[in-house]
């Protein structure tokens, strides 16, 4: 892989290159809460961040890392979200991107025989269509910066009776990542990480009560740590299931 080439030579040939592990210019979508915010907090220590979410700037500014840039990009309208992200990248003057984490996602719980069309469409738009269009739009910057694209999937991607649309959208991300990892090999490293149950607001937003099992869920901080670790591995797909996080704990932010 190109990243393993001697850094001095590459640095001359490719102005956008950074040594491995120094994620310098980082985009994280869906970074205003949950796993995305925990990832932003981790990565803010070693890179410049562009974060996105669907809330207005003033509503989330206080929870985001202090020096991170923020763009409101509501993925329920994927084409508009792409335009917002591209505009924000242009404002920052980033012609290359070292790491993009496409984490934003929504889900709904319910009987699939009673699922309204609007919900299926909203889930697929935010989770899958937006990821396809954002990946496509980021390609020139990722390729220029020899960057890394990380998609956040879900362990539900193998199928889930109560989250059929959500599971489908995450399976779609898996198919996208598998294909792109091979297609972009040597240009952009592509990776999908499938987190297991995590204690975020998503369950409540989705209308799901995990009951006493919630105690066993990973904290967003632990999951962010494991996603960051998995993102650096060479395998195109990693599942961070319960067995992987049961004995690991990341420190809570102060």
């Amino acid at each position: 892989m190109t990243r393993r080439a001697p850094a001095t030579h590459q640095a001359q040939a490719e102005p956008g290159l950074r040594p491995p592990g120094m994620a310098d210019r980082v985009l994280i979508t869906g970074a205003t809460s949950g796993i995305g915010l925990a990832l932003a907090n981790r990565l803010s220590q070693r890179g410049r961040l562009l974060l996105t979410g669907r809330s207005p700037d003033e509503a989330v500014r206080s929870v985001l890392p202090a020096d991170a840039a923020y763009a409101r990009a509501d993925q329920s309208a994927p084409e508009a979200a792409v335009a917002e992200i591209e505009a924000a990248l242009a404002r920052l003057g980033w012609d290359g991107l070292d790491l993009a984490v496409l984490n934003a996602g929504i889900g709904f719980v319910g009987d699939p025989a009673d699922e309204p069309a609007a919900r299926l469409r909203a889930t697929l738009d935010a989770n899958l269509v937006a990821a396809v269009l954002i990946s496509r739009a980021l390609y020139p910057r990722l390729a220029f910066g020899r960057g890394r694209l990380v998609l956040v999937g879900s362990t539900a991607r193998r199928g889930a009776a109560d989250f059929a649309g959500y599971a489908a959208s995450k399976a779609g991300l898996h198919g996208l990542a598998r294909a792109l990892a091979e297609e972009w090999r040597g240009r952009v490293a592509v990776k999908i990480v499938h987190p297991g149950p995590t204690a975020t607001a998503m369950h409540a937003k989705a209308g799901h009560d995990p009951g006493r099992f919630a105690r066993l869920f990973a904290s967003p901080e632990t999951m962010a740590m494991l996603i960051e670790r998995a993102a650096g591995s060479a395998r195109p797909a990693t599942t961070v299931s319960f067995a992987r996080f049961a004995w690991r704990r990341a420190p809570k932010p102060r």
């Binding site: 697929l124 899958l128 396809v132 199928g159 489908a168 399976a171 198919g175 598998r178 294909a179 297609e183």
Partner: peptide
Amino acid sequence: GYPGAAAYAASKDALAVYARS
């Protein structure tokens, strides 16, 4: 994996897992 048809592969994986679900 289906390099050269990534969005097609994504759509077909989504439909397959919907069917399983």
